[in-house]
Design a protein around this nucleic acid. Structure first.
Lengths: 79, 79
DNA sequence: TTCATATATCGAGATATGTCAATATATTTG
DNA sequence: CAAATATATTGACATATCTCGATATATGAA
């Protein structure tokens, strides 16, 4: 969640997509997290189901970005 | 944590102590939570160790109240 | 000091979570 | 379509968490 606040500061630019409008692809997150591909895939899928992330497919890549609306609801609740 | 924000609204006054300055005794929390005595005791002890609660002994009772300072640090971090 | 009450600790079983390797599926490219 | 790459799903095991009953400890009262 922290990394995805400022993707350009934490991830390399993607070879295909030149922007971070839809976030970062699974592989980049996986490599940075240092966990296995399957683990990260499950985590990201779950976080999307929870509403914390938004997933967008571009070709063979899935891009993940923060779902600020739900995140705010959550932080409001915690606060 | 929610209940302890306004103890007087969620718990009966204590037979001995007439105020809520140090929070609420374990038994009251246990009854309201509907979990066993041992479970609640462990939870409250852990929450105190985490810094979320402050425990004060008065005679044979332990009173628990929120540790607002640490709670704020936590909510700030989450936010 | 003994009893009653409040709380803490221990031991245990069920369920959940963290994590992986292996395999399956999707998608682009030659 | 076949190969290559990206992602998803499955099955499994280790560890953590939830929760309890039983027991131990602390403390005030008789």
């Amino acid at each position: 969640m922290e990394w995805l606040k400022e993707p350009e500061k934490h991830f390399p630019p993607h070879e295909t997509l030149k922007h971070f409008n839809d976030g970062v692809c699974v592989t980049y997150i996986q490599e940075k997290a240092g966990l296995s591909q399957s683990t990260i895939s499950i985590y990201l899928t779950n976080m999307e189901k929870c509403g914390l992330l938004i997933s967008t497919r571009h070709g063979k890549w899935s891009y993940l970005k923060r779902n600020e609306e739900t995140i705010k609801q959550f932080t409001d609740f915690i606060t």
